[in-house]
Amino acid sequence: MSQHRPDTLQHAPLGRESAYPERYDATLLYSIPRAANRAPLGIEEGALPFVGEDEWHAFEVSWLNARGKPLVAVARFRLPADSPNLIESKSWKLYLNGFNQTRFASREEVIAKLERDLSGVAGSAVEVALFGVDDQALAPRRLPGECLDDLDIEVDDYTPSAAHLKVGEEIVEETLHSHLLKSNCPVTGQPDWGSVMIRYRGPRLDREGLLRYLIGYRQHQDFHEHCVEHIFSDLMVRARPERLLVLARYVRRGGLDISPWRATPGERPPEPLRLARQ
């Protein structure tokens, strides 16, 4: 990923000083076409090699009821991976802040407005759910499978290199994960911390090489969604698994977290799944 600000972000609020809105304003949402970042990976719109979603949680959601009393919730948003656009995170936060002093007749009205606005910007239907802050659906869980992080490896490469991905001849079905994923915002350079889970059936992956590869994103600048697509694409090319799921759970920043997943058709992530760091 280029270290320079992408052309699609020249007018985005990310990395700029912004006034926080006091009233609802759907025009604050800023779309980013997915195609530009997919092209270098050989991914063509309309012929995606994966299925998947971008799952967001917003922990700073509030509005006023019809009598002016504040209500709060945690929101879960699911954007399909085949939507033409993703939504820039700071614009999303500014948009949500506009609800804080806006009256709504019901919870259902809030959901309907969120679904309408977000779907319009993403270019595909966005699913919205609101949870109470103590809802058990939000309880943290652990990633399934075996953790790679205790492997005693030497690392001197902090850029993603698919050359680290090696496989053996044995066909296996396993789930692996690491909490050492880190990438950086392509605009501000701020660190994005995360965990990644890989579930596959195919030639056995060399675990030390896989961990070196994942650590290689440590100085990489890209959006969360594109990092996951990059990992998925490299694994498909280098390991050629029969089935593959790549899921990342990024730590929240600015009251938002994002958890993209990409998979071969028929694969789905375990649900519900939130980690303690989120």
Rank of each mutant, 00 (worst) to 15 (best):
M1A: 07
M1R: 12
S2Y: 07
H4Q: 14
L9H: 14
G15I: 00
E17Q: 14
S18I: 11
A19E: 14
E22D: 09
E22S: 07
Y24A: 02
Y24D: 08
T27K: 05
L28H: 01
Y30V: 00
P33K: 09
R34Q: 14
A35L: 02
A36F: 05
I43V: 15
G46Q: 05
L48D: 00
V51D: 10
V51K: 11
E53I: 03
D54R: 03
W56H: 02
A58C: 15
A58G: 12
E60I: 04
E60S: 12
E60Y: 04
S62C: 07
S62G: 14
W63I: 13
G68K: 02
G68W: 04
K69N: 00
L71G: 02
R76V: 10
R78L: 11
P80M: 14
A81Y: 00
S83G: 15
P84I: 09
N85K: 05
N85R: 09
N85C: 15
S89Q: 01
S89I: 06
S91Q: 10
Y95H: 06
L96W: 03
L96N: 01
N97F: 09
N100Q: 12
Q101T: 09
T102G: 09
S106R: 12
R107T: 07
V110H: 02
K113M: 13
K113T: 10
E115I: 08
D117H: 06
L118R: 02
G120I: 01
G123D: 05
S124C: 00
A125T: 13
V126T: 13
A129I: 11
F131N: 08
V133W: 05
D135W: 07
D135A: 12
P140E: 03
E146S: 00
L148R: 09
L148E: 11
D150Y: 06
D152K: 14
Y158I: 08
P160C: 02
S161F: 08
S161W: 04
V167T: 15
G168V: 04
E169G: 04
I171W: 10
V172L: 08
E173N: 13
E173C: 10
T175L: 04
H177L: 10
H177C: 14
S178Y: 00
L180T: 09
K182W: 04
K182G: 05
N184F: 01
P186H: 07
T188P: 03
P191K: 03
M197G: 13
R201H: 13
G202R: 08
L205K: 11
D206I: 02
R207K: 15
E208N: 07
L210A: 15
L210R: 13
I215M: 06
R218P: 11
H220R: 12
D222A: 15
H226W: 00
C227R: 08
V228C: 13
E229V: 01
H230S: 14
D234M: 13
D234W: 06
L235Y: 06
L235S: 02
L235Q: 01
R238A: 15
A239Y: 11
E242C: 12
L244I: 08
L244W: 00
L245T: 13
L245H: 11
A248E: 02
Y250G: 07
V251G: 00
G255I: 13
L256K: 03
D257T: 02
I258V: 15
P260K: 12
R262D: 11
T264C: 03
P265L: 07
G266E: 04
E267F: 03
R268P: 02
P269F: 10
P269Q: 05
P270C: 01
P272R: 10
P272E: 10
R274P: 03
L275C: 11
R277Q: 08
R277W: 00
R277F: 01
Q278V: 05
